[in-house]
Amino acid sequence: MTQARVRSGFQQGHLSLTPRTFQRRLSRSNYSFRKLLDGVRVELAQTMLRNSSASMSEISASLAYAELSVLSRSFKRNTGLSPSVWRVSACG
């Protein structure tokens, strides 16, 4: 989903870099596209957890995670908390 959009952005000239230049710059900053995507998805999940009553399954699907467990692992890796524990602490 997101990688296809990025590829499309390069092809349509929306990004003023070639894909290889983008990859090199990410690498120089000790980032990868996967790491960047993971961080953005977790930020979006946090926003959804804080501002909606959507279920974890709905959030997982809307962020194009293959399974709920993938969202849970990614979220915990980035925040130190499970999504449900984070939601309780952020909302209450």
Rank of each mutant, 00 (worst) to 15 (best):
S60Q: 03
S55D: 04
A66R: 11
S74I: 01
T18E: 14
G39Y: 12
S84E: 14
R73M: 06
G13K: 15
S53I: 03
S72W: 03
A61L: 09
L26K: 04
L17W: 08
K76E: 13
M1K: 08
S52A: 06
A66P: 02
L44R: 10
S32L: 07
V70F: 00
R73G: 02
R25L: 15
S55K: 11
F75A: 06
S69A: 10
P19M: 11
Q3S: 08
L81I: 00
F10Y: 13
L81K: 11
A64M: 04
N78Y: 09
A66H: 06
D38T: 11
G92N: 10
L15P: 02
A66V: 07
S53H: 03
S53K: 03
Y65H: 03
L81H: 10
A54N: 05
L71V: 03
L36R: 02
F10V: 11
R77A: 13
I59M: 06
L17A: 07
N78T: 01
A4P: 01
S16A: 14
L26V: 04
A4N: 11
L37S: 10
S69Y: 05
P19Q: 15
V70D: 06
Q46L: 09
F33P: 02
L37F: 10
G13Y: 13
Q12P: 00
F75Y: 09
E43H: 12
A45S: 09
S89R: 13
Q3W: 05
L68A: 06
S52I: 07
R24D: 11
S60V: 02
L37E: 15
R7K: 13
H14P: 00
S62E: 05
S29Y: 02
Q23T: 14
N30A: 09
A45D: 01
R28P: 00
S27I: 04
Q46S: 11
V88K: 12
M1S: 12
S32A: 12
K76D: 03
A4Q: 14
T21R: 15
P83R: 07
S53V: 04
S82E: 10
R41H: 04
R25V: 11
S16M: 14
I59E: 00
A61M: 01
R25W: 08
F22E: 06
W86P: 05
R41C: 01
R24A: 13
A66E: 08
L71I: 04
V85I: 11
A4M: 07
L68W: 00
P19S: 13
L26M: 14
G9R: 10
L36A: 09
F75N: 05
F75H: 04
